[in-house]
Write a protein that binds this DNA or RNA. Structure first.
Lengths: 146, 146
DNA sequence: CTCCGGTTGAGAACCGTTCTCAACGCAACT
DNA sequence: AGTTGCGTTGAGAACGGTTCTCAACCGGAG
């Protein structure tokens, strides 16, 4: 389990690539990185509207952050697309399907082994995988929302 | 690696639940089950239009089949949502990100173990997981499309 | 044959996402 | 400070995929 990357680190990533880290981008990043649960783009846009961040900018920035690998896409039990930061190294999300609380874990050993086996068996050259585990967190279960 | 469920079996599933297995539903099912690669809803609708299947029906039927667990949602390398039949037992898809050819594999042993560990560590009650492996199949690689 | 409930197709409506474009912000340079 | 230039931004239009509406249709039960 890893900690979210701090805003400070992110600024460095942007600077390194020569991409401006604007006020809007900071706000959007903070919205996702500052939460321990995944959020939808709509939620972020709603929350940041009063800060003068347009929804087009939220979409653009989420795409940008995703491309940089700083934001990962997950989905809750109803299939809604949410984003969460950040998939450092190679962790995977364990998501509460109800409140979208998110815990990251490392499960790469298991999967790497599997990938090697599959490559040998199928002739595919593996370039990635996607693993999400879904559950109901203790809080939601106790609240009877499970 | 498992074989796709035959149309015959599917009819039984429908009958059992008292859901009519109509001409349109058969055509839609055949479209997904008869291919060894995942297809989008749009593709299915285009292919079946000349058979007199409306796109609303394709959407409705795909939702129905998904709810019955007879169709699984996957995505190609560009993030496009595709559907493929069927995830029998508990197999996972290995998808060619280029042509969407699909090979199913069993990897459940590995994951079940992981799930137990996570449940113990986090207090979540795990209800499911989602594992997809992405690669480029030999044919696409040779064709230089990788 | 008639009824009746579920299914279907066409098209409208909806909604999330992307595009367009003028205004803006900011750094570099004068 | 003023100017230039370029990337970013916000508002709103456009777009495209998905869902909804509703009348017509189909097939089984009576």
């Amino acid at each position: 389990m890893t900690d979210p990357q701090s805003t400070h680190d992110i600024e460095a990533v942007f600077r390194e690539k020569g991409i401006p880290f604007t006020r809007q981008r900071r706000l959007i990043w903070d919205h996702f990185a500052g939460a321990d649960r995944a959020a939808t783009i709509t939620e972020a846009a709603d929350a940041l509207r009063s800060d003068g961040v347009g929804q087009a900018t939220v979409y653009r920035t989420v795409t940008l952050l995703s491309d940089l690998g700083l934001l990962a896409r997950v989905q809750d039990r109803r299939g809604e697309i949410c984003y969460t930061a950040p998939p450092i190294g190679h962790s995977h999300p364990l998501i509460c399907g109800v409140c979208r609380k998110l815990v990251r874990f490392e499960g790469d050993g298991d999967v790497k082994e599997l990938e090697a086996r599959l490559a040998a068996e199928t002739g595919f050259s593996i370039y990635g995988h996607h693993l999400e585990v879904y559950g109901i967190c203790a809080k939601c279960r106790e609240a009877g929302r499970g």
